[in-house]
Design a binder for these strands. Structure first.
Lengths: 242, 242
DNA sequence: GTGTCGAGTTCCATCTAGTGGAACTCGATC
DNA sequence: GATCGAGTTCCACTAGATGGAACTCGACAC
């Protein structure tokens, strides 16, 4: 989105209303919606009426509660038919890249290696350049470790036997913490943070990684970066239907 | 919709843009969209940017064409899953009730309390009667603890601050074990076993509970009852698309 | 039957969000 | 180098969007 533009407020408000509907919370009163988006009842009523007119919301005549309308399922089906991991992930990767201006990569496992399938590069002069298509081992580096951690145990152990750089203990820790960090494992002076991406069946199918010169990853902002990488991986997972 | 209201124009325009995407026309340029909705390029650009920011549209960096974004699939799945949790759960609850002739309840969280939304009663004379619509705290009782355990941490901690009856440790244990037991916490002489129910996104949206006089829950059959409650909750989760 | 209350609706004065035309950038093509 | 079309950015203008106030209506308590 252009830096000169600001989002259209009314549209954001309408989308905020759609965002009020969550698993376990699929029917809401007008007051619940107004409270959720913190708008006047009259404003909420008008926006909800617009969404209802277009069948994005519908009103249960018995309970007077709103739920997502039939149009939502229609365009949802349309959206699902156009699904591609890279394409789904890319907007989220760009957001993460925009936050810190560090390189953000998407890796999948192929033939016991990891392959970069999507990349958003940093614009800073000092950067760790990674290209789409690059192949790397699973046993070294943060993204590799993520993919390794969620492999079937026998395959994982066979790889660790060949290159015992990482340990089952650290992989267990990764599964527990939901992320891992590499400090110069593959390239001296480069730090990486990686987190798992899950599909609709909760299977780990990819690893999201943000990396750059270690000098930019030191200090108090590091745990914020970790949290953001994890969150972005979660958002991608959710977008894939988890 | 009220006759005095008119729809919000900007919102209608945004929905017009979503309507441009049809089977066979899933990727469009900005110009195609602008032509389709008969608006200025600058207006179209601004609206599209807003939808893109919120992941309702995404832009293919190679072709510069737009398609429906990941959020569309998400809320589409949500719309499709707008099936009745109660209706799906009831047959499983009846099976559990038939096995032991104890009361089986289904709870959801509302306004920081739990509400019973479905109930299969025991036919035995000595029974703990629970009514659909009954509200109870989250911090006491097995079903409440299940719903509490999977709440966002900040909300959970606020509730525990008010009523520190249960602990974060016991909630962590619950998450690990997948069930919890209450021995007379809310009603003397009543035992409850509860387990979480997940939706297609693996979010915990309800708690299944079986309860009755403690005298009937003592002895060697207790762990069998625990296993059956867990299993029934799993079956309900699977039926919801997990 | 009456009074109270909360959810929701309608009205309208206010004002800034939203607009679109113009100027611009940029990459492809000739 | 010139041309063209897609898309971006800017900004003066105004009507669309807003929310507070007044209102309706149904449920409920007494």
């Amino acid at each position: 989105m252009s830096t000169s533009d600001t989002p259209v407020r009314s549209i954001e408000r309408a989308l905020d209303i759609l965002d009020c509907f969550k698993p376990g919370r699929l029917e809401l009163t007008l007051t619940e919606i107004a409270t959720g988006i913190e708008l006047a009842m009259s404003t909420t009523s008008r926006i909800v009426a617009t969404l209802e007119k277009r069948h994005y919301l519908s009103r249960n005549p018995d309970t007077q509660r709103y739920s997502l309308g039939s149009r939502i399922s229609q365009i949802g089906a349309l959206g699902l038919s156009n699904m591609d991991l890279r394409r789904v992930a890319l907007p989220f990767m760009k957001e993460l890249n925009a936050l810190y201006n560090e390189g953000v990569s998407l890796y999948i496992e192929r033939d016991e290696e990891r392959i970069c399938i999507e990349r958003v590069e940093s614009t800073l002069p000092l950067r760790r350049v990674i290209n789409v298509g690059d192949r790397h081992p699973l046993t070294r580096g943060a993204a590799g470790r993520v993919l390794l951690a969620y492999m079937p145990a026998d395959r994982r152990q066979a790889l660790l036997a060949k290159d015992p750089f990482t340990t089952e203990e650290s992989l267990a820790e990764l599964r527990h913490g939901g992320y891992t960090v590499s400090l110069g494992e593959r390239e001296e002076g480069v730090t990486s943070i990686a987190a798992p991406i899950q599909d609709a069946q909760c299977a780990v199918i990819a690893a999201l990684s943000m990396s750059g010169p270690s000098v930019r990853f030191e200090g108090s902002g590091f745990s914020d970066k970790i949290a953001k990488v994890k969150r972005t991986a979660e958002l991608i997972s959710n977008a894939l239907g988890r």
